[in-house]
Every structure is written in structure tokens, then in C-alpha cells.
Design a protein around this nucleic acid. Structure first.
Lengths: 163, 163
DNA sequence: TCAATTTACTTGATTATTCACGTGATTTGT
DNA sequence: ACAAATCACGTGAATAATCAAGTAAATTGA
């Protein structure tokens, strides 16, 4: 008697006849993430900031300057896309782009004073959303979630998609 | 002596001076979700299917027919957007749209035989990705993740953004 | 009953994103 | 040393998504 698989998955995979979408982990992952972005989008609209701008400002708050490549990777967005986002952010005086002095292929993106002011307001908004989102969660639950998400991402990036 | 907050959050909120982005749960949520979609996008491209098409087919595999509103809500996408997606899917003979006989405001979306055939192939691809994504996870860990994501989404949708 | 709302989309115009390609700068290999 | 490869973008053209407005059908309330 042989097992069907070496590692039993808690939920049936999409190609299983009894697959149940509403229980599917990756469906729940996406739907939750998009719901979050949808809700953030609404409150951001109220202060006239779009989601990509908020995300870039947040990254620059974390690491200033950042390169275009870094921003692209950490937002999981095509480089050409964030180039465009940066262009309109520069028009709005939220960031400045300067060619790196050490490697003139790379563009360093700096947050401006105005950008920093906007970011401070956005942080308060994001903080409120965070508290709402994790209401009723214990510290260890939040911790667990972060660890699980990290491991999941590592699995997804390591060995892109071996056959 | 008073506590700083009633419920202690495991990770500091965005508006805290010692905030650390790489540990932030919602940043990890989005980055993981987008990484997943990015990887899926690559393998889907190889079979010439775009991500929105795949998602709609998956929903129709789960519930056929679905209404435009259902598809919009379950994908967390603006209705006008999925209307467009459905138009191009109909052009590709993957779905059919019919006005509901009981309520002629609603459009029922049916998967076609061709759509079902394409979906079967996509399910195999999605299954491979799923196994890769959760490699090394125990059943209970996967279970935990689904429960946490569900609770998070409930928090995000209930009382949209009080204050 | 019938005017006012609400619901469930659809569509035209606008905006955003991505693809494919190009450019100039650095690295690599011999 | 120097040709070939790679890297880090930027850009024009194409595609996709969103907003605002509109339509037709159902529902609500006086």
C-alpha cells in the first residue's frame, strides 16, 4: 500500500476533482491582499494619493535613496512601470532622480521634503488600517503570519518554476 | 503607569519611529501575493493566457454560471474592468454571456467547452505552482495560514474604514 | 400606482501599465 | 586590452484598467 503523495497538502490542489476554491490558500492570499489594497486605495484617494505613489514613498521612508531596481524588486513591479511612476512623482516634487556617481547606469531616487511630509500623513492612515486589519490577533498570530508569508515567498522565488 | 496601547501589536505600526518595513505583515502580504502572481504570470504566458483570464476561468470552474458582480467581488476587481475582460474572453470563445431570464439586469457568464479545456491545462500548472509554494509546510501550517488570511480579510471588509 | 432609488451592468474617454526595443555603462572572459 | 555579454535603465507603441457617465430593469415607499 503506497501513499498518494509524500507530503500531504492540507487543501486539495487545483487539479484535484474535489478542489474547493474558497479554501484554497493561494486564492485566499490574493483575495486578502487585493482587499487590503482596495481598502487602502479608498482612503488614499481621499488624500489624493495613488497606491503606487504610496508604496514608493513607503520604500523610500525605509531606505533613502533607493535605486530604480530596488524599487522595482521590492514592489514586484516591472521596471518600466516604476520608471513612469517615478516620473509623475518627480513632477509632483515628491522624489528626485539622480544618476549614481559610482555607477552611471543606476538611478538613485531620493525622497524630497515634500515627499517626507506626505509620507508622514500616509503613515498615520496606514497605521489605522493596520490596527483595523489585525484587530483580535495575538502577537504570536501576527508573528506566525509573517513567518509563513516569508517562507511562501522564498519557495516561490527559489528555483522559479522547475518543470 | 499606563500601557501604551490596549492590544500590543507584534510589529510596530507604520507611524512608529522604529517601524521596520521588512517585518511589516501587510508589506509581506502584498509582496508575497504579487510574487505569486508574477510567477504565475510567467508560466501562464508560456501557454498564452493572461492572469485575469486564468482567474475568471478558475472562478467559473468553481461556480458556473457566475454573474458579473460575483466575478467582480471574488476577484476584487472593478466591474468595468471585468466587463472588459469578459469581452475579450468571449472573443476568444472561452466564455458566453447571457442575460439572466429571471432578472434581466444581471449577466450570467458561462464557461464554454473550449474554456473548460483550457482550464484543465491551467489547473495542472496551478497545481505545480501550489506544490512548489507550500513545499516544506505542514498541513496545520497551511491550515493556519488560511484561517489567518480569512480573519484578516474579514477585519478589512467589516466596517470599511471607521474614523 | 408610480415617482424615486437602487441595482447591475456597459461604454466612451482618460489614465496607467506593459511589451519590445534601444542606449550607454560596467563586467567578464580570454 | 578589448570584444562580448550583462546590467540598469528609458521610451514609443500597444494593451489594459479605471473613472465618470449612462441605460435599462427591478425595488421601494408614500
Amino acid at each position: 500500500m503506497t501513499d498518494k503523495s509524500q507530503t500531504t497538502l492540507a487543501f486539495l490542489p487545483p487539479d484535484h476533482p474535489d478542489f474547493l476554491l474558497d479554501d484554497y490558500p493561494l486564492y485566499n492570499l490574493n483575495r486578502t491582499s487585493w482587499t487590503y489594497m482596495d481598502e487602502m486605495g479608498k482612503v488614499l484617494k481621499a488624500v489624493d494619493v495613488d497606491a503606487p505613489t504610496w508604496r514608493v514613498l513607503t520604500l523610500l521612508g525605509d531606505r533613502n535613496p533607493s535605486t530604480v531596481t530596488e524599487l522595482s524588486q521590492r514592489t514586484v513591479t516591472k521596471m518600466s512601470t516604476i520608471t513612469r511612476i517615478l516620473i509623475r512623482m518627480e513632477k509632483d516634487k515628491l522624489v528626485e532622480r539622480k544618476s549614481s556617481p559610482t555607477d552611471s547606469r543606476v538611478t538613485e531616487v531620493f525622497i524630497t521634503d515634500k515627499g517626507r511630509m506626505v509620507l508622514e500623513k500616509l503613515k498615520v492612515i496606514a497605521g489605522r488600517m493596520y490596527r483595523t486589519a489585525f484587530e483580535g490577533f495575538s502577537d504570536s498570530e501576527i508573528n506566525t503570519m509573517v513567518q509563513l508569508l516569508r517562507r511562501l515567498r522564498e519557495n516561490l522565488t527559489r528555483s522559479p518554476y522547475l518543470e
